[in-house]
Amino acid sequence: MTRFRPCIDLHRGAVKQIVGSSLKDDGSAPQTNFESDQPAAFFADLYRKDGLTGGHVIQLGPGNGEAAAQALAAYPGGLQIGGGITPENATQWLQLGASHVIVTSWLFDKDGYFSLDRLNRLVAEVGAGQLVIDLSCRAKNGGWVVAMDRWQKETDLWLNPETLRQLSQVCAEFLIHAADVEGKCEGIDPDLVAFLGEHSPVPCTYAGGARSLDDLEQVQTLSRGRVDLTIGSALDIFGGTQVAYRDCLAWNRGG
């Protein structure tokens, strides 16, 4: 069954919902849909009280370490952590309470070429059972290419059945943001969801574009219940008007 999975996106220490395609390294402010006056730990504690599992904390750039650590402390073992994960800090994040570490950019060199050696180093440090590989991607040439550095830079890795098959052998889950629609509340990428449902050998969470509770039903149908869904900007706890958090809880509890 497709589940709703919660998220906490951090930008400069604050909980925000951002249009993914607007994140840049040139100092310009990203397009922000919502910024909370509540700390990250508030949302982590909310998820803990409601028994939500498999959610993720994503650090979008620097300045988020303290907020992320506080969120993990509020829900030990209940949240995954991503953003700047390397073999040097991965174990520390697990010790701080993360259930899994999420990795993207570390798997590539500065020019965007995938490095099996880098992946093996991380697996040796934390083990496949606590590793989530983030294959967030952009649509290109009728397929999807993995993007790194907060979805700004395309890599040489394509999201295809062989990529999913090979990487599934060294990780517990995949997390995949559809960067082209992330934060826009204009609908999910149905082709990507169906592709993941057909080809992912391990649990997989899709994020990007969700705008209504019906999207949970759509993901359930398209993936045959094999892909979970994260809802961000459309959610009322993040300032949205299209999806009620309590309705997502009800969905996970079977209505």
Rank of each mutant, 00 (worst) to 15 (best):
Q152R: 15
T205W: 11
F108H: 01
D117T: 11
D156Y: 02
A194F: 04
F114R: 02
I133L: 06
E162N: 09
H199F: 09
V145A: 01
L164F: 09
V146I: 10
T205R: 14
A139W: 00
D180V: 03
C137F: 08
V170I: 13
A139C: 00
A207Q: 00
L175P: 12
E198V: 10
K184P: 07
R165S: 12
K110C: 04
E173Y: 09
L175R: 02
V181N: 07
L119F: 02
I176Y: 06
F195S: 09
V123L: 12
V123H: 14
L175I: 06
A172H: 15
S115P: 06
D134C: 12
F114L: 07
C171L: 13
L107Y: 08
G187T: 04
R118V: 08
G143M: 04
A172F: 14
G187C: 03
L164I: 07
W144E: 01
N141P: 00
K153F: 05
V193T: 11
Y206D: 09
P201H: 13
V181I: 11
F114Y: 11
E173T: 03
N120F: 04
V193S: 11
S136G: 12
L192C: 05
V145P: 02
R165M: 07
K140T: 07
S168I: 05
A147W: 02
R138Q: 09
Q166M: 15
L116W: 14
A178W: 03
G187I: 03
P190Y: 14
W144P: 06
L116S: 11
L196T: 08
C204Y: 06
Q166T: 12
A147F: 03
Q166R: 15
H177G: 12
A194S: 08
P201S: 12
D156V: 02
E186N: 13
V146N: 00
L157Q: 06
G129F: 06
H199Q: 08
G127E: 12
R150I: 06
I133E: 02
L131T: 03
M148H: 03
A179N: 08
